[in-house]
């Protein structure tokens, strides 16, 4: 492996969601995993993880209240790796439409909308294991989806979905209630997973390992 192993990954604590299982999963592959919530700390990191479960508005409010919005955007502009999970992935987009219209981090152009047009009787939130399929329009960059097999199962908990404007930003799709949606979004070194890799067993751990390897190789 090229690059040094003294890399540091920070999980941004912006007040929503369970950071502990994510930290535990990252620590399987890298020692230096910290929880951060101010701009100075973010400056010293090699990669950022945006976790989160909860509403779009609460998420953005949490980021703004800590003055982190500009810092996270700068981090992306420098080409440093960012991993967004669930709400953390949604916040990477331009706008969210959960309980109103709210501005996101706008690192990837697009919006976050409620699941449209599901088959009768299909329950929302979408909770449980579902398959991710590599999108036709793109091929994985940076090997983030290395060695996970074809169409593996991962764990989802969400009611809203990612809709990037550039279809090339769609790395994987998933079908729920007859509707195909974007389950992984990517732009350069910025990745957003609608599912929870830290709760997706061996497949999820492999994805986290791939992300850590990508950080270590920088």
């Amino acid at each position: 492996m090229s690059g040094s192993n003294n890399k540091k990954i920070g999980i941004v604590d912006y007040g929503v969601g369970n950071l502990y299982s994510l930290r535990k999963a990252l620590r399987e592959f890298i020692d230096d995993v910290v929880i951060v919530e101010n701009t100075e700390e973010i400056n010293r990191l090699d990669a950022l993880v945006l976790p989160g479960v909860g509403s779009f508005e609460a998420g953005m409010e949490g980021i703004k209240a800590r003055g982190l919005e500009g810092e996270i955007k700068k981090f992306a502009e420098k080409g440093k790796p960012i991993l967004g999970i669930c709400l953390g992935a949604q916040l990477l987009l331009s706008k969210g439409y959960e309980f109103g219209e709210f501005r996101g981090l706008d690192i990837i152009s697009g919006k976050v909308v409620k699941f449209p047009g599901l088959k009768m009787g299909i329950k929302i939130p979408h909770i449980g294991w579902n398959k991710i399929t590599l999108s036709n329009s793109t091929k994985p960059e940076g090997d983030i989806l290395n060695s996970i097999g074809k169409d593996p199962y991962v764990y989802f908990v969400h009611s809203y979905i990612l809709e990037p404007i550039d279809k090339k930003a769609i790395l994987t799709t998933t079908i729920y209630g007859g509707y195909q949606f974007c389950s992984t979004v990517q732009k350069g070194n910025v990745y957003g997973f609608q599912f929870h890799p830290e709760k997706s067993g061996q497949v999820g751990l492999r994805i986290i390992k791939n992300f850590v390897n990508l950080v270590k190789a920088l």
């Binding site: 299982s21 535990k24 764990y155 709760k199 997706s200 999820g204």
Partner: peptide
Amino acid sequence: VSEEIFIP
């Protein structure tokens, strides 16, 4: 219990 478990 949860330490080495990566499912919900």
